[in-house]
Design a protein around this nucleic acid. Structure first.
Lengths: 265, 265
DNA sequence: CGGAACTTTGACACATATCAAAGTGTGTGG
DNA sequence: CCACACACTTTGATATGTGTCAAAGTTCCG
């Protein structure tokens, strides 16, 4: 199973492997308007993916609001009226859902090129909180406008459907993980998935900085933070990974994959 | 949280509260062709939901294959080419996903009026197995045709998007359940959800027959069948429910809801 | 430099899994 | 129609993985 946390928009994207947190210089968190044909991320962004030149002209009728979300700030909150999807242009987010009894849980992590907010389409309100784990840039895609556009560009409609479907498949994968895997398996799957998604974006699949805490990983994987920490330590002793706080080095990815298969032979 | 297992197509549907397993007389499992305007389930079915008379005429261009799936048979299997969505006209299904190491897990139960197969849209192949737990009737909706139709009927497109989105929200709910609830909470949520969905279809919310085994419930909830059985027994001792094999009587639904809240006060 | 947030590690508790055996119901073939 | 086999369920005894509680260690940031 390959759990793609959040839906990936493009299969691959080359980029300088600069894994350092993008600390922006300009402090304004102001929005700015932009269009698809002037967007430097258009090979990757939702509505523009695979459009022809003439379709792009149509697409430019749709105006996006690009905005910055600072670390710790919400992109949207549960209960907010749903108006837009958000393409992550740069950065890292967590989504959490709140149970009525007060507990909440991380339901996904999203990185560059993934689209957030699809849970809101049906209820017309967002059903989870999405918070930036580092200073991030997103492109807000007004849903109504997207729909009009998709009506004229069948390829876009199809693309959008696949995106939603993949989110369903991703969540299916998480259900399997939560329902039938032990702590070792969960964590090795988590690491392999992260590694794979980073690789698809041109980053190193073997060395990266985690953007989330042990507690957030645990919440996502249905484990307590102490268990996450212990399992990291165990993997390190076994030579599977190197751990220095948030910096992870995947030393034996085949070994990690074995962790998931070995309980049954 | 209200976990709607599979996406509900209509908010409510009145029906004679005949909960007995529909054992069909005619033995043929042959397909028959039908159109929306002659369908006796159209108030409930996907493409016809909320269409005007003239839109219905358009909809009739789309021909559906109605077919029967006998208990134990597959509606589709993981890996099958995706061509159609399936509206459950009558009956009960489970969907299971297989992990590469051999284990498999129930990812959802579906009943009348719910739509199956949305996981296949993205990958263009089904990603889970769906098996009838009783003799069932489905309506196969060719996806390509549905798309054409939706292009002409905006309300249908919107309806379809909401349906997919709700499936995402449902799975989110299951993730919460699997990630942060104990056995009591999981089972009471399961029962309440089932009860609620039955009520929405005009069946009794307080007395019903389970269509699945303890093992299947356990697989869905991330528990072993013995734990499911023990928890049923415990709920019975506490006067929350009555259990006689597959026949369940909800005696104290408020009490069941309390089970989910009481750990935190 | 000091405090806050996060991480690691240990000791122990507990919920659920595992293993086992008996009980119940159901369908089939004689 | 009975009897047998099979699938499912219940219950008990025990094992174990993960949670809980606690304390010390580390890093980060103001």
């Amino acid at each position: 199973m390959t759990t793609n946390s959040s839906v990936r928009i493009i299969p691959a994207l080359r980029r300088a492997p600069d894994d350092a947190a993008a600390t922006p210089k300009s402090g304004e968190s102001a929005q700015c308007r932009t269009t698809c044909s002037t967007c430097n991320l258009r090979e990757l962004c939702l509505p523009c993916c695979g459009l022809t030149r003439s379709e792009m002209d149509v697409a430019d009728r749709l105006v996006f609001h690009r905005s910055r979300v600072r670390r710790g700030e919400s992109l949207y909150r549960s209960g907010d009226r749903f108006t837009s999807l958000y393409a992550v242009r740069n950065g890292f987010f967590k989504s959490t859902a709140l149970l009525e009894n007060g507990r909440d849980q991380v339901t996904g992590f999203s990185m560059t090129g993934e689209v957030l907010g699809m849970d809101g389409i049906g209820p017309e309100r967002h059903t989870c909180n999405t918070i930036a784990l580092e200073d991030s840039d997103v492109c807000a895609i007004p849903f109504a406008g997207l729909q009009e556009l998709a009506h004229e560009i069948p390829g876009l409609q199809r693309h959008f459907h696949k995106m939603m479907s993949r989110e369903i498949v991703r969540e299916n994968g998480v259900m399997l993980l939560l329902g039938s895997m032990n702590a070792d398996e969960r964590l090795s799957m988590f690491l392999l998935n992260l590694s794979q998604r980073l690789a698809a974006r041109g980053y190193s699949p073997t060395e990266f900085n985690l953007r989330m805490t042990r507690g957030e990983i645990g919440s996502y994987l249905g484990l307590k933070l102490e268990t996450v920490s212990r399992t990291f330590s165990k993997f390190q002793e076994e030579g599977l990974i190197g751990v220095q706080q948030k910096f992870i080095r995947v030393l034996d990815s085949a070994g990690l994959e074995l962790v998931m298969g070995r309980e049954l032979g």
